[in-house]
């Protein structure tokens, strides 16, 4: 991934601090976070629960504003959500009154574009994640994993330049989670977008990412960044290789040393 270092960063987070509440109840979630997300890369934010990694992600998505510091996206200051940024949450957030296809088409509907124009693409995406047969089913007729697949299609429908993923598969069981991660890598490659994943799973972070940003416990700050040099596409067998295990151990050590 040496070529990546030459491209300008897609997102630049500079000295971002986030405080919630005030006075005695003040809580510092993030403290002076500096981070760059490069165009086309897959970056993980790895840290213990409550280290402010979700807060950092929400600031990058424009859902929260930083108390101090700046965030730029494509060189422009970012202060509110952008339609070039797609977000995925821990829950699939499927509307139960809409069919799978209608849920996937939601962004287009909100953008005021013609839904009909996007149906072929929506169906292609559903096909890619293997749930095209369920396009007319309602979310409550689908399993949790299938719902997250649909959510993945929804976020990719409008080709966001940046994907922000807040532990999207955290609520799924281990097996489903692993296959969803594969799915995600495949689709990110297909959509040629940049992705930032928030996770507290070390193996997952290393397996998925080009770089892993390790964060400290509250108040969250950046400890170090680990470069993950493995080729893509990555096969699950990679996780048993010595190099992989070494990187995982390195990340674990960083987390424990704090």
């Amino acid at each position: 991934m040496t070529t990546m270092t030459q491209t300008a960063p897609l997102v630049r987070v500079e000295g971002v601090t986030k405080r919630f509440g005030s006075g005695d109840k003040e809580m510092v979630a993030l403290s002076g976070l500096n981070l760059e997300v490069r165009e086309g890369e897959f970056l993980s934010l790895l840290g213990p629960s409550g280290c402010g990694k979700s807060t950092a992600l929400n600031i990058m998505g424009g859902l929260l504003t930083a108390s101090e510091g700046t965030v730029t996206f494509s060189g422009e200051p970012l202060t509110e959500p952008s339609r070039n940024i797609g977000m995925m949450f821990q829950q699939a957030v499927m509307f139960p009154w809409r069919t799978t296809l209608e849920n996937v088409l939601l962004p287009v509907e909100i953008f005021g574009e013609k839904k009909k124009d996007f149906i072929p693409k929506a169906e292609e995406l559903l096909e890619m994640v293997g749930i095209r047969d369920f396009r007319d089913s309602y979310p409550w007729q689908l399993s949790g994993g299938m719902q997250q697949r649909a959510a993945l299609c929804r976020v990719l429908l409008h080709d966001p330049k940046l994907l922000l993923l807040d532990e999207p598969f955290g609520a799924l069981d281990e097996f489903t989670r692993e296959s969803m991660n594969q799915e995600l890598l495949r689709l990110q490659d297909y959509a040629t977008s940049t992705a930032v994943l928030v996770t507290h799973n070390i193996t997952e972070a290393v397996f998925m990412s080009d770089r892993v940003a390790v964060m400290s416990a509250r108040p969250g700050r950046l400890v170090d960044i680990i470069e993950v040099p493995f080729d893509r596409p990555r096969r699950p067998e990679l996780q048993t290789s010595t190099e992989f295990i070494k990187l995982v151990a390195k990340a674990r050590q960083m987390l424990e040393l704090q």
Binding site: L63, R83, F89, Q91, V93, F95, L106, P107, E109, I110
Partner: peptide, 19 residues
């Protein structure tokens, strides 16, 4: 989470209300 989804799509107040 659903409200955040609508926000991240920059849905208007009216769209969030109706949809």
């Amino acid at each position: 989470n659903a409200v955040n989804l609508m926000k991240s799509l920059r849905a208007s107040k009216w769209q969030t209300m109706v949809k």
